[in-house]
Amino acid sequence: MGNTFCLFCGCVQQSNIGVVERWGRFYKLAEPGFHFFNPIAGECLAGLLSTRVSSLDVRVETKTKDNVFVQLLCSIQYRVVNENADDAFYELQNPKEQIQAYVFDVVRAHVPRMNLDELFEQKGEVAKAVLEELGKVMGEYGYSIEQILMVDIIPDKAVRLAMNEINAAQRLQLASVYKGEAEKVLLVKKAEAEAEAKFLGGVGVARQRQAITDGLRENILNFSHKVEGTSAKEVMDLIMITQYFDTIKDLGNSSKNTTVFIPHGPGHVRDISDQIRNGLMEASSAQVNIE
């Protein structure tokens, strides 16, 4: 339901304030409620002003310090001050245009001092400067600036694409660094594992040879004690010949080998026996030197 008036009375709705004139001059302000007017004394209701908070969106195009054209979308929230409603009614014919002009002036004075990155980081400072300047000016005309919001900063399309490409390149570079570090860790761990495996393999071979040597030593001693008149060399030759035939048997039973040429004869057997014995003696001597 709107405000209702007649010649002698009127009703001012809530969130509004009336301006009463007498003989064409400002007389008083009419608060919300029912009012009587005396037309004989020249009183009349000249107009109404809303005291609600109004919002005005202003789009400002300007240039930053690094020569990038941007558009700033500002949202200005303002209202009429009840006590100074007469100034708002009589002083300004179009308050929206006045507010817009001051926003243009302040924004275009501050933004050219900043780079594009600084503008995104300090948009609150720009809004604060606009609020201070606009609040002082519009306060003289009966308006209160409640709040100013920098809703959006829109650079040129080509600039936005370039910024996205820079960000994507930086992220790809960082991903490459992490990928390289991961590959480095894998290579180091693989090398450590191979080194550990070779070390353990060497220990196993050394223990195996030591066990073989100890076993041969025990066999020779047992055989010499049980069979009188046999020397250690004869026992060693017998053991080597037995191992030689066992090796030939294992090679023949292996499914992976098709044809194996091995020199065989009494002389070859003696040569092989001497070679095996000399090899075991050298290995045993080396083991003693190490210990």
Rank of each mutant, 00 (worst) to 15 (best):
A46P: 00
A46R: 04
A46D: 00
A46S: 06
G47E: 13
G47W: 10
G47A: 11
G47T: 12
G47V: 10
G47F: 08
L48V: 07
L49T: 12
L49V: 12
S50Y: 03
S50W: 03
S50M: 01
T51M: 01
T51Q: 03
T51G: 01
T51D: 01
R52D: 12
R52Y: 02
R52I: 10
V53S: 06
V53I: 14
V53Q: 12
V53H: 07
S55D: 10
S55H: 10
S55P: 01
S55A: 12
S55W: 05
D57W: 00
D57M: 01
D57A: 04
D57I: 02
V58R: 11
V58Y: 07
V58D: 05
R59N: 06
R59Y: 04
V60C: 07
V60Y: 08
E61K: 11
E61C: 08
E61W: 06
T62R: 02
K63T: 15
K63R: 15
K63P: 09
K63M: 15
T64F: 09
T64P: 05
T64C: 08
K65L: 05
K65D: 07
K65T: 09
N67E: 13
N67D: 14
N67T: 08
N67L: 12
V68H: 09
V68S: 09
F69E: 14
V70H: 07
Q71D: 04
Q71E: 04
Q71S: 06
L72Y: 00
L72W: 02
L72Q: 09
L73F: 13
C74I: 13
C74A: 00
C74F: 02
S75G: 14
S75F: 12
S75L: 15
S75R: 15
I76T: 08
I76C: 00
I76L: 05
Q77M: 11
Q77H: 14
Q77P: 05
Y78F: 03
Y78W: 03
Y78L: 01
R79C: 02
R79I: 02
R79F: 02
R79T: 14
V81P: 00
V81I: 13
N82Q: 05
N82R: 07
N82M: 04
N82K: 09
E83N: 00
E83S: 00
E83I: 04
N84A: 08
N84M: 00
N84V: 01
N84T: 02
A85N: 12
A85D: 10
D86Q: 12
D86M: 13
D87G: 00
D87F: 10
D87Q: 15
A88Q: 07
F89V: 03
F89M: 04
F89E: 04
Y90T: 13
Y90D: 05
Y90C: 11
E91G: 07
Q93L: 12
Q93Y: 09
N94T: 08
P95T: 14
P95L: 11
K96C: 03
K96I: 03
K96Q: 14
K96G: 03
K96F: 03
K96R: 15
K96A: 02
